[in-house]
């Protein structure tokens, strides 16, 4: 892992330029506020950290008072909680799930394993650093972090969203080539997810200079095209 790789990514927090129309600003602020106060989370229970989530959700700590609710499918969710070590097989699913989530979306790595592999550092089958494969908004370190820590982390994320600092999801589009490259390194050049990330970036104007590159070229060569089924007469 070369440190230069990470340099290619602009470091968070990055603030977006404000829109000039004051009404639009108010609207944006409102939407951001709502986003921060209504977070549907998809907890991807990969490891031991998951055990700490039920207390965080239920009567003891009651996440719902913060507007946080568990959801089941990536389509509905805003936050992806990776709760523990990510094996390489699991990582494929994590990436698939992440790509299927609707933006803005946020990733929280819980437990040390997501930060640096933790006690699985020496394992050949574990992805060590989650943020090489997808942008992570927040790490909650600990083995395992207690519910208080989880709630604390979520509150931090809320603040970041409110202040328009949680824009890591844009990184994924803008630096797709980098993430894809890391993924290809791990899974081989035939790696392909059903989600058309580049297409999405084009449609939602999230293309950056690093969206396309050598790795996306490989992808475009090997992938089986999955055009949406448009209605035809």
């Amino acid at each position: 892992m070369k440190s230069t790789d990470l340099d290619r990514i602009e470091v968070n927090p990055k603030t977006m330029p404000k829109r000039t129309n004051p009404l639009a600003n108010v609207f944006d602020d409102l939407v951001r506020f709502c986003r921060s106060r209504s977070m549907f989370m998809l907890h991807y229970c990969t490891g031991c950290g998951a055990i700490e989530l039920p207390p965080a959700m239920t009567s003891r700590f009651d996440m719902e008072r913060l507007g946080i609710q568990p959801m089941v499918t990536p389509r509905q969710a805003d936050i992806l909680l990776i709760t523990g070590y990510v094996s390489i097989k699991t990582l494929k699913r994590v990436i698939l799930t992440y790509e299927q989530m609707g933006s803005p979306k946020y990733v929280i790595g819980i437990c040390s394993c997501t930060v640096n592999g933790g006690m699985y550092w020496q394992s050949y089958a574990t992805a060590k650093k989650l943020d090489e494969y997808m942008p992570v908004d927040l790490y909650i370190a600990g083995c395992m972090p207690r519910p208080e820590a989880v709630i604390e982390g979520l509150q931090q994320l809320m603040d970041k969203i409110k202040n328009d600092q949680a824009n890591s999801w844009k990184q994924y589009y803008e630096n797709y080539d980098y993430y894809l490259g890391n993924q290809q390194k791990l899974f081989g050049n035939n790696w392909q997810t059903p989600t058309d990330v580049i297409g999405e970036a084009e449609i939602y104007r999230l293309m950056g200079p690093q969206t396309l590159g050598e790795h996306t070229k490989i992808l475009q060569q090997v992938q089986k095209p999955m055009e949406p089924l448009e209605m035809k007469l």
Binding site: L30, V31, F33, C34, R35, R37, S38, T58, S59, D62, E64, R65, G67, D78, G102, S103, P104
Partner: peptide, 19 residues
């Protein structure tokens, strides 16, 4: 539990439409 704040249903809806 404490439960959601007063405008929680509205927050949810605005957020979802604002995706």
């Amino acid at each position: 539990r404490v439960g959601p704040p007063l405008f929680q249903p509205l927050y949810d809806i605005v957020k979802l439409y604002g995706k």
